[in-house]
Protein backbone atom coordinates (compact mmCIF):
# COMPACT_ATOMS: atom_id res chain seq x y z
CA UNK A 1 0.00 0.00 0.00
CA UNK A 2 1.39 3.40 -0.92
CA UNK A 3 2.15 6.01 1.69
CA UNK A 4 -0.31 8.15 -0.24
CA UNK A 5 -3.30 5.98 0.57
CA UNK A 6 -6.62 7.73 0.03
CA UNK A 7 -8.22 9.45 2.97
CA UNK A 8 -10.00 7.18 5.31
CA UNK A 9 -7.62 4.30 4.88
CA UNK A 10 -5.17 3.42 7.58
CA UNK A 11 -1.51 2.86 6.82
CA UNK A 12 0.40 -0.20 7.95
CA UNK A 13 3.67 0.20 9.78
CA UNK A 14 6.62 -2.16 9.57
CA UNK A 15 9.73 -1.63 11.61
CA UNK A 16 12.65 -4.00 11.22
CA UNK A 17 15.82 -3.91 13.24
CA UNK A 18 15.48 -0.17 13.90
CA UNK A 19 18.51 1.30 15.60
CA UNK A 20 18.84 4.97 16.52
CA UNK A 21 21.96 6.41 18.15
CA UNK A 22 22.32 10.09 19.05
CA UNK A 23 25.06 12.16 20.62
CA UNK A 24 24.52 13.77 24.00
CA UNK A 25 27.46 16.01 24.92
CA UNK A 26 30.40 13.64 24.46
CA UNK A 27 28.45 10.43 24.80
CA UNK A 28 26.68 8.32 22.23
CA UNK A 29 23.30 7.15 23.39
CA UNK A 30 21.70 4.11 21.78
CA UNK A 31 18.04 4.94 22.07
CA UNK A 32 16.74 2.08 19.92
CA UNK A 33 18.60 -1.22 19.78
CA UNK A 34 16.86 -3.06 17.01
CA UNK A 35 13.14 -2.59 17.18
CA UNK A 36 10.94 -4.99 15.28
CA UNK A 37 7.32 -4.04 15.13
CA UNK A 38 4.54 -4.66 12.65
CA UNK A 39 1.26 -2.76 12.86
CA UNK A 40 -1.57 -3.58 10.52
CA UNK A 41 -3.48 -0.89 8.71
CA UNK A 42 -6.24 0.50 10.87
CA UNK A 43 -4.89 -1.11 14.04
CA UNK A 44 -4.71 0.77 17.35
CA UNK A 45 -1.57 0.18 19.36
CA UNK A 46 -0.32 1.60 22.65
CA UNK A 47 3.35 1.77 23.50
CA UNK A 48 4.35 1.32 27.11
CA UNK A 49 7.69 1.32 28.83
CA UNK A 50 9.71 3.05 31.50
CA UNK A 51 11.36 6.42 30.88
CA UNK A 52 14.30 6.02 28.56
CA UNK A 53 13.00 2.86 26.98
CA UNK A 54 12.81 4.51 23.59
CA UNK A 55 9.08 5.00 23.17
CA UNK A 56 9.26 8.68 22.20
CA UNK A 57 12.26 8.02 19.97
CA UNK A 58 10.33 5.30 18.18
CA UNK A 59 7.45 7.71 17.73
CA UNK A 60 9.84 10.32 16.37
CA UNK A 61 11.28 7.76 13.96
CA UNK A 62 7.83 6.80 12.74
CA UNK A 63 7.01 10.44 12.06
CA UNK A 64 10.29 10.95 10.24
CA UNK A 65 11.62 13.47 12.76
CA UNK A 66 14.75 11.39 13.35
CA UNK A 67 16.66 9.27 10.88
CA UNK A 68 17.34 5.58 11.65
CA UNK A 69 20.94 4.80 12.34
CA UNK A 70 20.21 1.29 11.10
CA UNK A 71 17.20 -0.82 10.18
CA UNK A 72 14.13 0.22 8.27
CA UNK A 73 10.89 1.95 8.95
CA UNK A 74 8.12 1.53 6.43
CA UNK A 75 4.88 3.45 6.46
CA UNK A 76 2.81 1.75 3.80
CA UNK A 77 5.33 1.17 1.01
CA UNK A 78 7.46 4.18 1.83
CA UNK A 79 10.73 3.62 3.61
CA UNK A 80 11.39 6.52 5.94
CA UNK A 81 15.18 6.18 5.90
CA UNK A 82 15.38 6.68 2.14
CA UNK A 83 13.09 9.70 1.98
CA UNK A 84 14.33 13.24 1.41
CA UNK A 85 13.29 16.10 3.65
CA UNK A 86 10.84 17.21 1.05
CA UNK A 87 9.31 13.73 0.88
CA UNK A 88 9.12 13.53 4.65
CA UNK A 89 7.34 16.86 4.68
CA UNK A 90 4.88 15.52 2.19
CA UNK A 91 4.48 12.44 4.33
CA UNK A 92 3.56 14.52 7.33
CA UNK A 93 1.18 16.56 5.25
CA UNK A 94 -1.99 14.56 5.84
CA UNK A 95 -0.47 11.06 5.80
CA UNK A 96 1.28 10.80 9.10
CA UNK A 97 -0.02 12.97 11.91
CA UNK A 98 1.78 13.56 15.18
CA UNK A 99 0.07 14.58 18.42
CA UNK A 100 2.65 16.10 20.77
CA UNK A 101 2.46 15.71 24.50
CA UNK A 102 0.51 18.60 25.96
CA UNK A 103 -2.55 19.75 24.06
CA UNK A 104 -1.40 23.35 23.88
CA UNK A 105 1.61 22.39 21.83
CA UNK A 106 -0.58 21.06 19.06
CA UNK A 107 -2.66 24.20 18.65
CA UNK A 108 -2.22 27.82 17.73
CA UNK A 109 -3.08 29.50 21.04
CA UNK A 110 -4.75 32.51 19.50
CA UNK A 111 -6.94 30.60 17.04
CA UNK A 112 -10.32 28.97 17.64
CA UNK A 113 -10.76 25.20 17.27
CA UNK A 114 -12.24 25.69 13.81
CA UNK A 115 -9.34 27.93 12.78
CA UNK A 116 -6.87 25.44 14.13
CA UNK A 117 -8.42 22.66 12.09
CA UNK A 118 -8.45 24.89 9.01
CA UNK A 119 -4.81 25.80 9.62
CA UNK A 120 -3.89 22.15 9.90
CA UNK A 121 -5.63 21.47 6.61
CA UNK A 122 -3.83 24.26 4.84
CA UNK A 123 -1.05 22.17 3.51
CA UNK A 124 -3.27 19.33 2.42
CA UNK A 125 -4.99 19.03 -0.92
CA UNK A 126 -8.74 18.80 -0.74
CA UNK A 127 -8.84 15.25 -1.99
CA UNK A 128 -6.59 14.16 0.83
CA UNK A 129 -8.52 15.80 3.60
CA UNK A 130 -10.71 13.75 5.79
CA UNK A 131 -13.57 16.23 5.79
CA UNK A 132 -14.19 19.90 5.87
CA UNK A 133 -13.23 21.52 9.15
CA UNK A 134 -16.74 21.99 10.46
CA UNK A 135 -17.73 18.48 9.45
CA UNK A 136 -14.69 17.07 11.15
CA UNK A 137 -15.44 18.86 14.37
CA UNK A 138 -19.05 17.76 14.21
CA UNK A 139 -17.99 14.20 13.55
CA UNK A 140 -15.92 14.26 16.74
CA UNK A 141 -18.67 15.94 18.77
CA UNK A 142 -16.67 19.14 18.95
CA UNK A 143 -18.83 21.40 16.79
CA UNK A 144 -20.18 23.24 19.82
CA UNK A 145 -16.62 24.35 20.58
CA UNK A 146 -15.79 25.48 17.03
CA UNK A 147 -15.51 29.18 17.77
CA UNK A 148 -14.67 29.11 21.46
CA UNK A 149 -11.37 30.59 22.64
CA UNK A 150 -8.97 27.85 23.64
CA UNK A 151 -8.47 29.38 27.05
CA UNK A 152 -12.12 28.60 27.82
CA UNK A 153 -11.80 24.85 27.12
CA UNK A 154 -11.17 22.15 29.70
CA UNK A 155 -8.10 19.94 29.48
CA UNK A 156 -10.02 17.13 27.88
CA UNK A 157 -11.74 19.39 25.38
CA UNK A 158 -8.42 20.92 24.48
CA UNK A 159 -6.87 17.53 23.84
CA UNK A 160 -9.80 16.46 21.70
CA UNK A 161 -9.52 19.60 19.65
CA UNK A 162 -5.81 18.83 19.30
CA UNK A 163 -6.70 15.39 18.00
CA UNK A 164 -9.11 16.94 15.54
CA UNK A 165 -6.40 19.28 14.31
CA UNK A 166 -3.95 16.43 14.05
CA UNK A 167 -6.30 14.35 11.89
CA UNK A 168 -7.62 17.28 9.92
CA UNK A 169 -5.61 16.23 6.89
CA UNK A 170 -7.02 12.73 6.89
CA UNK A 171 -3.85 10.92 7.92
CA UNK A 172 -3.46 7.18 7.54
CA UNK A 173 -1.36 7.05 10.71
CA UNK A 174 -1.79 8.98 13.95
CA UNK A 175 1.11 9.04 16.40
CA UNK A 176 0.05 10.30 19.81
CA UNK A 177 2.48 11.06 22.64
CA UNK A 178 0.83 10.73 26.05
CA UNK A 179 -2.60 11.84 24.81
CA UNK A 180 -4.22 11.53 28.24
CA UNK A 181 -1.48 12.99 30.47
CA UNK A 182 -2.60 15.52 33.06
CA UNK A 183 -6.29 14.70 32.43
CA UNK A 184 -8.84 13.58 34.93
CA UNK A 185 -10.80 10.37 34.42
CA UNK A 186 -13.60 12.02 32.47
CA UNK A 187 -11.19 13.81 30.25
CA UNK A 188 -9.20 10.69 29.72
CA UNK A 189 -12.30 8.77 28.74
CA UNK A 190 -13.33 11.45 26.30
CA UNK A 191 -9.91 11.45 24.68
CA UNK A 192 -9.85 7.67 24.38
CA UNK A 193 -13.30 7.77 22.83
CA UNK A 194 -12.13 10.36 20.34
CA UNK A 195 -9.16 8.27 19.36
CA UNK A 196 -11.44 5.32 18.86
CA UNK A 197 -13.79 7.39 16.78
CA UNK A 198 -10.93 8.57 14.62
CA UNK A 199 -9.95 4.99 14.07
CA UNK A 200 -13.47 3.87 13.35
CA UNK A 201 -14.47 6.82 11.23
CA UNK A 202 -11.37 7.22 9.13
CA UNK A 203 -9.69 3.86 9.51
CA UNK A 204 -6.62 5.64 10.76
CA UNK A 205 -3.93 3.50 12.29
CA UNK A 206 -3.34 4.82 15.81
CA UNK A 207 -0.12 4.44 17.78
CA UNK A 208 -0.20 6.04 21.22
CA UNK A 209 2.59 6.31 23.78
CA UNK A 210 1.19 6.24 27.27
CA UNK A 211 1.74 5.27 30.88
CA UNK A 212 -2.00 4.83 31.39
CA UNK A 213 -3.02 1.12 31.45
CA UNK A 214 -6.65 2.12 30.88
CA UNK A 215 -5.68 3.59 27.50
CA UNK A 216 -3.90 0.42 26.61
CA UNK A 217 -6.78 -1.75 27.68
CA UNK A 218 -9.28 0.22 25.64
CA UNK A 219 -7.22 0.71 22.55
CA UNK A 220 -6.42 -3.00 22.20
CA UNK A 221 -2.88 -4.08 21.39
CA UNK A 222 -0.21 -3.07 23.85
CA UNK A 223 3.49 -3.09 23.09
CA UNK A 224 5.98 -2.80 25.92
CA UNK A 225 9.41 -1.45 25.20
CA UNK A 226 12.45 -2.03 27.28
CA UNK A 227 15.93 -0.77 26.78
CA UNK A 228 15.33 0.23 23.21
CA UNK A 229 13.60 -2.94 22.13
CA UNK A 230 10.12 -4.37 22.01
CA UNK A 231 9.95 -6.58 25.04
CA UNK A 232 6.35 -7.65 25.51
CA UNK A 233 2.97 -7.36 23.95
CA UNK A 234 -0.44 -7.53 25.40
CA UNK A 235 -3.74 -8.22 23.79
CA UNK A 236 -6.65 -7.83 26.09
CA UNK A 237 -5.74 -9.58 29.31
CA UNK A 238 -3.06 -11.69 27.70
CA UNK A 239 0.60 -10.93 27.92
CA UNK A 240 3.28 -12.13 25.55
CA UNK A 241 6.96 -11.67 25.18
CA UNK A 242 8.10 -10.99 21.67
CA UNK A 243 10.82 -12.88 19.88
CA UNK A 244 13.13 -10.37 18.27
CA UNK A 245 14.51 -10.58 14.73
CA UNK A 246 17.70 -11.94 16.16
CA UNK A 247 15.83 -14.52 18.16
CA UNK A 248 16.20 -12.64 21.43
CA UNK A 249 13.45 -13.00 23.92
CA UNK A 250 12.86 -10.63 26.81
CA UNK A 251 11.53 -12.03 30.04
CA UNK A 252 8.47 -10.26 31.39
CA UNK A 253 9.47 -7.63 33.85
CA UNK A 254 7.74 -9.47 36.64
CA UNK A 255 9.98 -12.52 36.12
CA UNK A 256 13.30 -10.79 35.92
CA UNK A 257 13.99 -11.05 39.60
CA UNK A 258 13.47 -14.80 39.42
CA UNK A 259 15.92 -15.15 36.55
CA UNK A 260 18.40 -12.28 36.85
CA UNK A 261 20.86 -11.37 34.15
CA UNK A 262 23.40 -14.11 33.55
CA UNK A 263 21.07 -16.95 34.44
CA UNK A 264 21.65 -20.05 32.24
CA UNK A 265 18.48 -21.37 30.69
CA UNK A 266 17.99 -24.48 28.66
CA UNK A 267 15.54 -24.31 25.81
CA UNK A 268 13.70 -27.55 25.22
CA UNK A 269 11.27 -28.23 22.47
CA UNK A 270 7.97 -29.56 23.49
CA UNK A 271 6.02 -30.25 20.35
CA UNK A 272 5.29 -26.79 18.84
CA UNK A 273 6.20 -25.10 22.05
CA UNK A 274 9.49 -24.32 23.68
CA UNK A 275 10.13 -24.89 27.34
CA UNK A 276 12.65 -22.84 29.27
CA UNK A 277 14.37 -24.77 32.03
CA UNK A 278 16.72 -23.03 34.36
CA UNK A 279 19.97 -24.79 34.91
CA UNK A 280 20.46 -25.42 38.55
CA UNK A 281 23.58 -23.83 39.90
Amino acid sequence: MSAHAPAGAGLPVRVEGLVHIYRLFDTEVVALRGVDLTIAAGETVTLFGPSGSGKSTLLAALSGLVRPSAGTVRIGDAEIGRMSERELLRLRRGRVATLLQGAGRNLLPYASPAQNVAFAQRGTGRRHRAEAADELLAGLDLDHLADEPLAALSGGELQRVAIAAAVAGGPGLLLADEPTSQLDAAGRDAVIATLQRVNERFGTTVVAVTHDREVGARLGRQVVMRAGRVGEEGRGDERFVVVGADGALHLPHSERDAWPAGTLVEVRRDGDDLRLVRRQP
Binding site: S63, L65, L89, R90, L91, R92, R93, G94, R95, A97, T98, L100, R105, N106, L107, L108, F119, A120, R122, G123, T124, G169
Partner: peptide, 9 residues
Protein backbone atom coordinates in the same frame (compact mmCIF):
# COMPACT_ATOMS: atom_id res chain seq x y z
CA UNK B 1 3.91 22.72 14.58
CA UNK B 2 3.60 23.94 11.03
CA UNK B 3 6.51 21.75 9.97
CA UNK B 4 5.00 18.88 11.89
CA UNK B 5 1.77 19.39 10.00
CA UNK B 6 3.73 19.11 6.80
CA UNK B 7 3.24 22.70 5.65
CA UNK B 8 5.54 23.51 2.75
CA UNK B 9 8.63 25.64 3.32
Amino acid sequence: LAKLRGLSL
